[in-house]
């Protein structure tokens, strides 16, 4: 039962990621054009945002 939930969660993560692929692309294009501290902070923001987005799938549903 738990395994099924985990698998479903990963499937949902995949779907959400694909759904937001253009957003993620935008983030990364921004990240590539920056350097130094700006790049570091934007990079952290990207990773944190992604994690929050994916972790809160259930919540948003």
């Amino acid at each position: 039962m738990n395994i099924k939930k985990v698998i479903k969660f990963f499937v949902d993560m995949g779907k959400e990621t694909i759904a937001q692929v253009f957003t993620i692309l935008g983030f990364f294009i921004a990240w590539f054009t920056l350097t130094g501290t700006a790049q570091d902070i934007v990079g952290i923001a990207i990773v944190v945002s992604l994690v929050i987005w994916l972790v809160t799938i259930r919540l948003r549903d």
Binding site: A19, T23, G26, F27, A30, T33, L34, T35, A38
Partner: peptide, 27 residues
């Protein structure tokens, strides 16, 4: 951003905002 050149900042401004807006529209 102070450790970026003006040229980089300018190009980043030109690229980042339009790309994010465009990506949001597409999404």
């Amino acid at each position: 951003g102070q450790d970026m050149t003006s040229d980089q900042r300018e190009k980043a401004q030109e690229v980042v905002v339009p790309v994010i807006i465009a990506s949001q529209i597409i999404s």
